[in-house]
Design a binder for these strands. Structure first.
Lengths: 224, 224
DNA sequence: AAAGTTATGTGACTTATGACACACTTCCCC
DNA sequence: GGGGAAGTGTGTCATAAGTCACATAACTTT
């Protein structure tokens, strides 16, 4: 499979591009480049211009932010097949976090200028993108309100399920960071995790959570 | 001033269209129609196709939703100069609430098909709209998380300030509805309002709130 | 004007979660 | 291998809000 075809598959998996036709997707994929990153290499930093969209071909990229106390908090892990910077490529606003390669990686890069040129040549695609952005706006306002109002166990279960999608059943994250993710105190996170350990839903190790019973966990995430 | 020029002014006031050039705005305004509504007449209902954007020329339109128990909750009031359905006109999704004229009204109507045709002819405008939608997405995700985490008094103050922008200092809304707005129990809303009444920030009447001291209220909304 | 209906005011209780305090463990580095 | 530093486990307490249960007050309908 060609590089471009591989990128097209990744785009297709993202809701933002899922509804594009095969032909449109192909023409778009043809605009992509690739870029290699060594382990620990910085892809972009907070404040950089958001001038490209990235897709992970292989390796891992960590999205993280420097906290005020100097410590770093990982906000997200992007693995093969993940796409990030979709919004930045459309509006060019500055990055709001840092991105660093967690291991030697290869990325697909779609530059903003190329993408905008494409949209200008294909207004029908622009209109589709507009629809998708609108959906996202609606979706966000529905989900957000809903999900922030959920009790901590639900939010926590949802986040663990999401992480499991990236990591498999062994999630490598500290309880502190998990707390930041779900907007809760570290202690509260710990107590909930303990409760679940007693129910054999998961096991705990230092800096690691082993998900034993995804069925129960997703049930909790769906709020019973 | 022509009808179209009047509509252009309304569009210009909305963040979604504020960045369009005068010429683009004019061509867009030329696509508008007007529509008259008698007092109590229904403009659209939940589930209808979102096939147009509306601007209020004169009168008042209530956006409301039928609650499960059959009672109606007013979600918003649109007065002269207000625009609604901006997102629907772009993505055509179904209305998520009902709209009824609160008095005899005249509306500007911009139909979805006309608007999409316009975007297709002017891809540069489409790209601008895309940027604006992206901004909105970012804005939403920032504000939302932040604002749901705020304590009730802050959320309540913010909502009251927003309502004041539409109503002036005499906000006509029940405490029950206010509770729905800010996602809190009616009783909690009442207790907070009582506290503010004692501080002379506002006065309470049946179905009505009189804002006495907007300075203090906005200070609270900004979280001290 | 009597009766019913809706909106408001308030007290008592419950619950979820944050805050603080500290013990214990594991890892890392010199 | 000793001494941090970082991560984790738990108890105690404080607090914000929700829930329930009424009492009242204000409008509506007949």
């Amino acid at each position: 499979m060609s590089k471009q075809a591989e990128f097209a598959v990744i785009l297709k998996m993202n809701p933002m591009f899922a509804d594009l036709g095969a032909d449109e997707l192909q023409r778009l994929s043809n605009l992509c480049h690739t870029q290699h990153l060594a382990n620990g290499e910085v892809l972009f930093q907070k404040g950089d211009a958001g001038d490209a969209l990235f897709g992970v071909r292989r390796g891992q990229v960590r999205i993280e932010t420097g906290a005020s106390d100097g410590s770093r908090l990982t906000l997200n892990f992007m693995g093969p097949g993940d796409l990030f910077g979709e919004v930045a490529v459309l509006d060019g606003q500055d990055r709001t976090a840092d991105a660093t390669a967690g291991e030697a990686s290869e990325l697909f890069v779609l530059r903003r200028e190329d993408f905008l040129g494409f949209l200008e040549r294909e207004p029908k695609v622009a209109i589709k993108i507009i629809s998708l952005l609108c959906q996202r706006i609606r979706w966000q306002s529905e989900r957000m309100e809903e999900s922030m109002l959920q009790p901590l166990p639900v939010r926590l279960a949802r986040r663990l399920c999401a992480l499991a999608a990236d990591f498999g059943s062994e999630v490598h994250i500290s309880q502190e960071q998990l707390g930041v993710f779900v907007g809760a105190a570290r202690e509260s996170v710990n107590r909930q995790l303990q409760a679940w350990r007693k129910e054999a839903i998961l096991d705990l190790q230092r800096g690691r959570i082993l998900l034993r019973n995804m069925t129960k966990l997703t049930a909790i995430a769906r709020n019973e």
